[in-house]
């Protein structure tokens, strides 16, 4: 069966309405998705990073007080393997960098910042991406602090992936919905088409004095009723037929 995808003029506006509705749904759900994923991922990353910073801070105490700083570097290098963590640095109570993972050097923005501040801060480093940095004090800050920078592009990528998946789903539903809507509308429009064709045939028959077509008159649905009504009106409009119609009533 050939699928007729031509949309009847009658239904173009409703179809446009459906498009609009889907668009609003897609945009609003994506926006909610972005906001939710962004907020939840950011919170999760921040929470995890803060936990890691705390772990490093706890493990650093013994190393800073008793051991060589290469052990401290070895410790932070292992945590750098965790996805999303871009840099780690440890400063002592005087703000001196004891260990860090920066290449080719410590960025000026970080050198200029307050090393004792362990609050969450957003950083944009020259020549690099944006980062969210969390900190944790070592021995309540008297031995320094640990700072961990998370690459925001990882969060952005996750958001893009989540939104992409949602958009893919909505688009698929939208496509299926539109095809279904067109098919249903065409199905609904078929009696109207038949009625229109009947009206044209009726007019032609009236003009050429042929007998009126009778195919649609036998239907018992709205199309049949309208066809009979059209036939009635065509006869009412014709005085001869109107008389013929009126005679049986007079007799």
């Amino acid at each position: 069966m050939k699928l007729n995808m031509n949309v009847q003029k009658l239904f173009r506006r409703p179809l446009f309405g459906i498009f609009l509705l889907f668009g609003i749904i897609a945009v609003s759900t994506s926006w909610v998705c972005i906001a939710t994923v962004d907020s939840q991922l950011s919170e999760e990353y921040e929470s995890n990073s803060r936990g890691i910073a705390q772990t490093i801070a706890d493990a650093s105490v013994d190393i800073i007080l008793n051991r060589d700083l290469s052990a401290l570097q070895s410790l932070i290098d292992q945590f750098l393997e965790i996805q999303g963590i871009s840099y780690i640095y440890i400063v002592n109570e005087d703000g001196e960098f004891l260990a860090h993972t920066f290449v080719p050097g410590i960025p000026g923005e970080i050198l200029a910042s307050d090393p004792a501040n362990t609050d969450t801060v957003e950083r944009v480093l020259a020549g690099a991406d944006s980062f969210v940095e969390v900190g944790s004090p070592i021995l309540a800050g008297v031995a320094g602090s640990v700072h961990i920078g998370m690459d925001k592009s990882v969060i952005t990528l996750k958001i893009q992936q989540a939104v992409g998946r949602q958009m893919y789903l909505i688009s698929s539903i939208f496509l299926v919905g539109i095809i279904a809507a067109i098919m249903l509308m065409n199905l609904a429009a078929r009696p109207v088409e038949h009625l229109l064709a009947y009206a044209v045939q009726l007019a032609r028959a009236e003009r050429e004095g042929e007998p009126a077509p009778g195919a649609l008159l036998e239907r018992d649905d709205e199309a049949g009723q309208l066809a009979r009504l059209l036939l009635y009106f065509s006869r009412v409009a014709d005085p001869e037929k109107a008389g013929a119609l009126a005679q049986p009533e007079a007799s």
Binding site: D68, L69, S70, L72, Q73, S74, D77, T101, F102
Partner: peptide, 26 residues
């Protein structure tokens, strides 16, 4: 940028510190 580098860096820092100096850049 690893434990080896840090070990050497710490050695330079300590040696300079003992003589009242510090690393001027890294």
């Amino acid at each position: 940028a690893d434990a080896y580098g840090r070990s050497g860096w710490a050695g330079v820092r300590e040696a300079l510190g003992a003589r009242g100096e510090q690393i001027v850049g890294e």
